[in-house]
Simulated assay, not measured.
Amino acid sequence: MRPDIVTFWHGPLDALRLLCLRSQVAMGHKVTVYSFDPLAQLPDGVGNAEAEAILPHSFAERLRPTGPDGVWRDWTTLQFSDFFRMRLMARAAGLWLDADVLLKKPVEIDPAKPYFAWERPRQLGNSVLYLPPGDPIVAAFASLIQQDELTPDWLALRHRLTFMLRKLRGYRRLSDVRVAIYGPAALTALARRAGELRYALPKKSFYAVHAEPKLFFEPRDISALTGDPDIIGFHISPKGRGNTAPVPGSLYAWAAERFGA
């Protein structure tokens, strides 16, 4: 089955992410971006839906309080999106792709089975994620979100000890301690507990350039990346380079030529 694609975004979209959204549409997917404010200049074929109906804006206060101006601080958006994608899974909304996932080919899933890939040797990525609504991982997040302190029961012992020590120093929230505690680390721990690691695709399926952005932004021989049939897409993680111009000879330039406006 070729699923609908869903994601969440807070703030303006940069040129790279607009390119990635165009690639998702070009591969034949219906794409919807959830946001709290209307998003301008979305590519043709990309819908914009209200995020408040999925997870209220106020939930961010349980992660990290905003400043006096109400602006989300530090990694609030990242942690909020970790919960948001699980809420979408509970609603059977579709396949989650981060807005910086560039598709090279269509994604096909079995709606009865999880869909994700290894990001690192011992860690799953959650930038590409589908879970059936009744999956144990979805249920674990549904239970967690009811807690005031948002402290998972799947934390590794070292993370529990770290949190205990930090609480003695005045930390109130687990979200103050570890930026990705609800993201890939959580997905990996829960998939292991549920016996679902066997569903994980190889790292290169989506994360061939994730750890080395230069493979995407700098000129080089890209034939191994563009010609590999096992690479479905690229999670890019631009780290501040989302509005830089593509350099000729780079994978970015190849993508811009293929999916550019």
Rank of each mutant, 00 (worst) to 15 (best):
M1R: 14
M1E: 11
M1I: 12
M1F: 13
R2G: 01
I5K: 01
W9P: 00
G11K: 06
L19W: 01
L19N: 02
H29M: 11
K30N: 14
E50K: 08
E52F: 10
A60P: 06
P65C: 13
P68Y: 09
D69H: 11
D74W: 15
T77K: 13
L78R: 11
F80D: 03
D82F: 00
D82E: 13
M89K: 08
A92N: 15
L95Y: 07
D98P: 02
A99R: 00
P106Y: 03
E108K: 13
E108N: 09
I109K: 06
W118D: 02
R120D: 14
R122T: 14
L124H: 06
G125W: 01
A139H: 10
A142S: 14
L144I: 03
D153T: 14
F163R: 11
F163Q: 09
F163C: 08
M164A: 15
L165Q: 15
K167Q: 15
L168F: 13
Y182W: 10
L190E: 01
G195E: 06
L197D: 00
P202C: 06
F206V: 05
P213C: 05
E218F: 11
D230P: 00
I231C: 04
G233M: 03
H235R: 09
I236A: 04
P238V: 03
R241K: 13
T244A: 13
V247E: 12
E257Q: 14
